[in-house]
Design a binder for these strands. Structure first.
Length: 765
DNA sequence: TACTAAGCTCTTTTT
DNA sequence: GAGCTTAGTA
């Protein structure tokens, strides 16, 4: 088919000058289905932003453009770039994550699905807490039905558009659940779905599932949105899961103006249901598709691009595409070996410090990427000591803090009195004499009588089952009721302030004069400031309601409030969070087998391939310089683990690596050089299989022999010991045996303490 | 019912 | 090293 709007290449508008030929073609194919396969660093975001600018240049109304991304960071980045290109009009483009865009739509259409328009969004903590409660109520084994496990299974089902009814009827699922000894999954799924619905709450997956249901069951609604969005664009299409795929397909069904951009080599979200097939099948779904391949990398040196390719070629499944660059050769990738994570932190801080002056780069030019959020600590410490400013993205953010969640729970409950999870948080915080037993009775009662939670609470005195605390419950209800009357008359900030004061949260935190207490108080004030800013934002009034704020908060889990976005600092984040970003210098740390690739990925080939793609993503973030580092040993759960270097280091073609600092023999993790870390014979050979045999087969030294290991036979009353955490002390008594014995130790600083002795926690001095 | 101390159990990534 | 649970005390 010929699309009428196709512009001949000689009519390239001047603002597209900066793009290369394939980029221009992709941008200018404005009508009809378009697939852009874009290698790492090939200007993918650039093409998307220019494409939007081009659409507007050709007369499209920004309101008609929908642009979907996966992370908030990517959405923000995109919005900024477009604003630079087209100015303030960019604000009118529908742009955001799948979740935020569809939550916004659902907010308007919720009644059609039987939800209140002020529905709550449950984050995974809420979901897990609810599941935990259900498992308990059903008298199931809490060890067997771990909340995260159950939620994972439910999530997987939902992402494949399987609701609890079809789940219960599906022999395959039931078979599998029986096989794994967890036959009750389906029933938990059912209870969970029903409780969420009753609470007027959607979890993350429900936002997508319900959008799909809305479009499927209400064709008039679908039709409206189909015409509303004349142009649909999806970034990181390789990361879409089935429900996201179905929704975009429906939305684009009328105009067929769908443009997807992706790179199969960067698919790193299979764990949440992403399906690479979506990108592989795009051509089948849209036979008229115009496909463009962007293969020239503008970001990185030859060395980096080649090294990354040498890694990814180990994966079996790939689209045909070869990324290349015209950039300089560049430096080899530096590999560092360190004794412990502490040493690793110091090494990386030093490295950054040196490179800053060598390359004349600001802090902003550096990123430290790791596999798991918990790895950030060692680097925070060393950077602080080195006097380098840094910022951590993701992890336990501002909105995850207890005091913030408590306050938000108040607001949530005011907005939606059926929000069971919010109620659980606040009914006895600050303590008002309503204990667990009472709460339990209320929930059970509501379920038995088929009443809304709120109804039971409001007239608690009428239910003798509730017992002695019924009066207090009613009092609590009256307080909430008084807050509720303010919903219509007051803006979000005034309401929040009032709730904070009257609810007693402000007072409780103010009175806590411990250091943590004071910081909690500050955090609460910061939240209130945030609400004030939100209220004063120049949006229309209807956008400033409490439910809208709560939604923003629930879906914006990114980095908390950024007081100073222009601060010059080093970026610390997980590799997942780094997707779409680029930095002159990148340090990939914790390059250890079992950590990266993650231990859990080792058993299946496809999981391992995803880890490898993750490594590929990390490598291709770097523009000029790349460092890989690993620790030979690492502390975990208080004990010392010995680590092997990641297999991924071996997979990089050796010509791209500089191993000179990988062979440095690490010192013993415990000062004084008494240990034997870096066992003899592990000095690296010169070949590309540098680490293979020597280090993997003779990994690390057993623990220092002077440490108490397993049984306590070597420990005696009167001995002086050094405990990892508590320092020096004298053993006063020992009882028990094996690896779980109790001892009373009189510590120099703390006095006598009873300890359960475990491997490697202490040693005889 | 509220608070504290001690003990136990964890391993991943995001919305 | 954190978050949760349990046991014990006020």
């Amino acid at each position: 088919m010929n699309w009428p709007n196709e512009t001949p290449s000689n009519e390239v508008p001047p603002f597209l000058d900066k793009l290369n030929a394939p980029q221009q073609q992709a941008v200018m194919r404005s009508e009809g289905p378009v697939m852009i396969i874009a290698g790492a660093g090939s200007g993918k975001t650039r093409v998307l932003t220019y494409r939007i600018a081009y659409l507007m240049h050709k007369g499209a109304d920004p309101f008609q453009i929908l642009s979907l991304t996966f992370t908030n960071k990517a959405a923000r980045e995109m919005r900024e770039r477009i604003e630079q290109l087209v100015g303030a009009q960019a604000r009118n483009i529908w742009m955001g994550t799948f979740h935020s865009v569809f939550a916004r739509i659902l907010r308007q259409e919720a009644d059609k699905l039987g939800y209140p328009s002020n529905f709550t969004i449950y984050d995974s903590d809420d979901s897990k807490s609810l599941i935990k409660a259900i498992v308990k109520e059903m008298n199931l084994d809490e060890k067997l039905y771990k909340p995260s496990l159950v939620l994972g299974r439910i999530s997987m089902a939902k992402n494949n558009l399987v609701d609890f009814k079809s789940y219960l009827k599906n022999d395959e699922y039931n078979e599998a659940d029986r096989g794994s000894g967890r036959p009750k999954f389906g029933e938990i799924f059912k209870a969970y779905s029903e409780r969420c619905f009753k609470a007027g709450a959607m979890d993350f997956d429900d936002i997508l599932v319900n959008t799909h249901r809305l479009f499927k069951e209400h064709l008039d609604v679908l039709n409206r949105w189909q015409h509303r969005f004349r142009y649909v664009m999806v970034d990181e299409y390789q990361d879409t899961n089935h429900v996201q795929y179905m929704i975009t397909k429906k939305l684009a069904a009328v105009n067929q103006n769908i443009c997807v951009v992706g790179d199969d080599a960067q698919s790193i979200y299979a764990f949440r249901g992403a399906n690479i097939q979506n990108i592989l099948n795009f051509e089948r779904d849209y036979p008229d598709v115009a496909t463009f391949k962007l293969e020239q990398n503008y970001r990185s040196t030859k060395n980096i691009v080649n090294a990354a390719s040498s890694v990814i070629k180990n994966n079996e499944k790939q689209l045909e595409k070869s990324v290349w660059t015209a950039n300089d050769e560049g430096d080899k990738i530096q590999v560092f070996r360190n004794a412990t994570e502490g040493d690793e932190g110091r090494k990386i801080a030093e490295f950054i410090f040196e490179q800053k002056s060598a390359l004349h780069l600001p802090n902003k030019g550096f990123a430290i990427l790791y596999r798991t959020n918990s790895q950030s600590r060692a680097f925070e410490e060393s950077l602080r000591r080195q006097g380098l400013d840094y910022r951590i993205y993701g992890g336990t953010g501002f909105y995850q803090r207890k005091e913030i969640k408590d306050m938000l729970a108040y607001l949530r409950f005011v907005a939606n009195p059926n929000d069971e999870e919010a109620l659980k948080r606040i009914i006895n915080y600050p303590a008002r004499g309503i204990g667990d037993t009472t709460v339990q009775r209320v929930t059970v009662l509501a379920a038995q009588e088929g009443l809304a939670l709120w109804e039971v609470i409001k007239s608690a005195k009428h239910f003798p089952e509730i017992g002695a605390s019924a009066g207090k419950v009613e009092q609590f209800a009256m307080m909430i009721e008084s807050f509720r009357t303010m919903l219509e008359t007051h803006n979000a900030y005034d309401l929040a302030m009032h709730v904070a004061k009257q609810g007693g949260v402000l007072k409780a935190l103010y009175e806590d004069k411990s250091i943590e207490g004071m910081s909690r108080y500050e955090n609460l004030m910061e939240l209130l400031n945030g609400i004030q800013e939100f209220t004063e934002d120049d949006q229309s009034d209807s956008e400033k309601t409490l439910p809208v704020f709560l939604e923003e908060v629930a879906l914006y889990t990114d980095d908390a409030k950024d007081k100073d976005p222009d601060r010059d600092c080093i970026s610390l984040m997980t590799i997942h969070a780094s997707k779409g970003l680029e930095f002159p210098v990148v340090c990939i740390v914790g390059m250890e087998e079992n950590l990266f690739p993650s231990q859990m990925a080792l058993s299946s080939r496809s999981d391992l391939e995803e880890e490898r793609r993750l490594f590929y993503v990390a490598l291709t973030r770097a523009e000029q310089k790349l460092a890989l580092s690993f620790a030979s040993s690492r502390f975990k759960f208080g004990s010392l683990l010995h680590c092997e270097p990641s297999r991924f280091i071996d997979e990089i073609d050796s010509q791209y690596l500089d191993m000179s600092l990988a062979s440095v023999k690490p010192k013993s993790p415990f000062e004084s050089g008494r240990g034997r870390a870096g066992a003899d014979g592990d000095s690296p050979s010169k070949s590309s299989t540098l680490f293979k045999k020597p280090m993997r087969q003779a990994p690390l030294p057993a623990a220092d022999p002077s440490f108490v290991a397993g049984d306590l036979s070597s420990l005696a009353v009167g001995q002086k010991i050094q405990h990892q955490r508590f320092g020096y002390g004298i053993v006063e008594s020992i009882e028990g045996n094996g690896d779980q014995a109790k001892a009373v130790v009189n510590f120099e600083n703390l006095g006598p303490k009873t300890l359960v002795l475990k491997f490697a926690k202490m040693r005889i001095v």
